[in-house]
């Protein structure tokens, strides 16, 4: 028996909007720790890891570890039917091939049930090693989203270079080149507007902008994004989900042949 009640149902709506275009089908894993997902895109270039900790739910009942295969497009369709202020409850019985989403309006005057078919998905979890990153950039998520969008109108790839001067995002395309430098700036009034760079050594990596732009669909989940870079590892683009967990996107770099 599984029953997860999320008062801030809009979080789950935003999570689905953030990942549904990157991953078609995925297993959601339910355990005492929380509600989680790990899935790769169909090209095996990017990986998304989601965790919503059990403490973040108003009610969290998960009698035994359960893996539920869902089509994320279909799940997003169902969650779109929930109001932004609705409380969302997920329910599944042991051995059932369906999951039920219950939406309650804040005033309890409208209660909806949506039942969705589960699917068998063959997926293996990848081991993500703990890593010391050469550079960690923390910046406003809206700024990062703007940069990815702007650069993708010029080129297909972005070179992210971190030095003690700042973080530089560069692209080139048929019409020309673009460079955007964000300097460390932690003197702003609001912490969510700060750009903070922690660096142990300079790093420069190239990534496909198509994926970066897809990751920025998570912007509504957090005002801050963290980019963790090392010269020999995929970049981690992390959006923290307030009081609940995170959504992390890993993107393999483009490398010299």
């Amino acid at each position: 028996m599984l029953e997860l009640r999320l008062v801030q149902g809009s979080l789950l709506k935003k999570v689905l909007e953030a990942i549904k275009d990157l991953v078609n089908d995925a297993n959601f894993d339910c355990s005492a720790t929380g509600f989680s997902l790990q899935a790769m895109d169909s090209s095996h270039v990017a990986l998304v890891a989601l965790l919503l900790r059990s403490e973040g739910f108003e009610h969290y009942r998960c009698d035994r570890n359960l893996s539920m295969g869902m089509n994320l497009g279909n799940m997003a369709k169902m969650l779109k039917c929930a109001g932004n202020d609705d409380i969302i409850t997920l329910k599944a019985d042991d051995g059932s091939d369906t999951v039920t989403f219950m939406f309650e309006s804040p005033t309890q005057d409208k209660i909806s049930d949506f039942e969705m078919k589960l699917m068998d998905i063959d997926s293996e979890h990848l081991g993500i090693p703990e890593a010391e990153y050469h550079a960690i950039v923390r910046m406003p998520s809206s700024e990062f989203g703007r940069i990815c969008k702007d650069l993708s109108s010029i080129g297909d790839t972005v070179v992210i270079s971190v030095t003690k001067e700042g973080v530089k995002f560069s692209t080139r395309g048929d019409i020309g080149t673009a460079n955007i430098v964000c300097r460390q700036n932690n003197t702003v009034d609001k912490p969510e507007e700060a750009t903070i760079i922690e660096m142990t050594e300079p790093v420069s990596l190239t990534f496909a902008l198509r994926y970066m732009n897809s990751f920025t669909k998570a912007t509504p989940l957090s005002s801050i994004v963290t980019l963790s870079l090392s010269s020999d590892l995929p970049v981690v683009v992390e959006y923290k989900i307030a009081e609940m967990g995170y959504i992390r996107f890993y993107l393999a770099p483009k490398i010299e042949e």
Partner: peptide, 14 residues
């Protein structure tokens, strides 16, 4: 030229 690497080249199967 540069080639797209695969995430599976970095993270092994559990």
């Amino acid at each position: 030229s540069q080639q797209q690497s695969s995430i599976m080249g970095y993270f092994g199967k559990k």
